[in-house]
Write a protein that binds this DNA or RNA. Sequence first.
DNA 1: GTCTATATAACGATAGAC
DNA 2: GTCTATCGTTATATAGAC
Lengths: 202, 202
Amino acid sequence: MALEKETEEKIFKAAQSIFQKRGFEGARMQEIADEAEINKSMLHYYFRSKDKLFQEVFQAGIKKVMPQLFGILKSEMGLSEKVNEIVNFYHDMFRENQHLPTFVVYEMNQHPERFKEFLGVMNIELPDVFREQVNTEVSEGRMKPISAEQFLLNIVSMCMMPMLAKTMVKTIFALDEVAYANFLEERRALIPEIILNGVKPS
Amino acid sequence: MALEKETEEKIFKAAQSIFQKRGFEGARMQEIADEAEINKSMLHYYFRSKDKLFQEVFQAGIKKVMPQLFGILKSEMGLSEKVNEIVNFYHDMFRENQHLPTFVVYEMNQHPERFKEFLGVMNIELPDVFREQVNTEVSEGRMKPISAEQFLLNIVSMCMMPMLAKTMVKTIFALDEVAYANFLEERRALIPEIILNGVKPS
DNA sequence: GTCTATATAACGATAGAC
DNA sequence: GTCTATCGTTATATAGAC
């Protein structure tokens, strides 16, 4: 029946919202049920347990980020173009899903095993194309010596940190919601410039 | 009595360990008591409630970071020296207290009000000295146009992100505990170079 | 499939003896 | 101050009627 899938999906969407906002420990099955406008026992009918429901939300969260990121890294683009794409990807993703980055990063630390075994299923490892791209730039003297790992981490750090530390940024810099959004938008152009200029040989 | 203070301190240290590792929602009063090797009811005797105990741990966490960071920003050093000091500060702090960055950043998002009112008590706002320092460098053409806020956030992002996303970094880059520690150490020199080179006029 | 009612366990917190 | 025992509540989860 169509209604079954609809119900299951309503629950899942609600679970995403609550888990991402409150974390596994902070989330309440009742709150998920309320959000889905559905009876609490339905959660168990469709997903058996809080743990299983969380697992699916967690994995969906990773699937929403990693494949796209690694898609860019594996692509045929030039290095500076990739930097731009990654920065735009993170900022677009965050606009639609404010709590996703915090959720994924935090819950990974809380349940490293879950993440590790899931990464085996997908095949997530630093693409050779990207690694060679960085190495070539370095060996041909167009970039200062840096590993592909450090280079990628720099980009990701500059993008994600202000999202993870939203409250901190807003509070210390005295930004309201709009000013914060503008502040982030400013970084779409700023980050690639710093990242690329930062490794330029002097 | 000396024993009172000792007991209170044992509880507090245990609470720091557990809260920082598990978060407020994930922490259990029983686990704190076990860690302190003390009876559970003692927690309430000394700190009344889980909430009050958490509050103190949370505020102590902020006090451990912010004053030192803002101390550097307010100091007489030159800008590039400040960058170095900040980077070293974060890396030293993390060596001693692995879970502190995650804890502070995450719980800030979960309880923005608590943080906001506490920041009023301390006076945490971006020091004028630092702001003018950045503005001067920019207006005199030694740095590309950038606000003091974005400049500072770049440094903090590069330092904290790999600490917050420890599991993610370790897993995707296939690093064991030692390799991860070395990877972080590498960044002590790397980050200031990127940050400063990144804003150098071309 | 969906509801109500309830089982079962865990948690924070307190009372009261010592 | 420190302990044992227990209260009151809330959480996940299930049983059973419809």
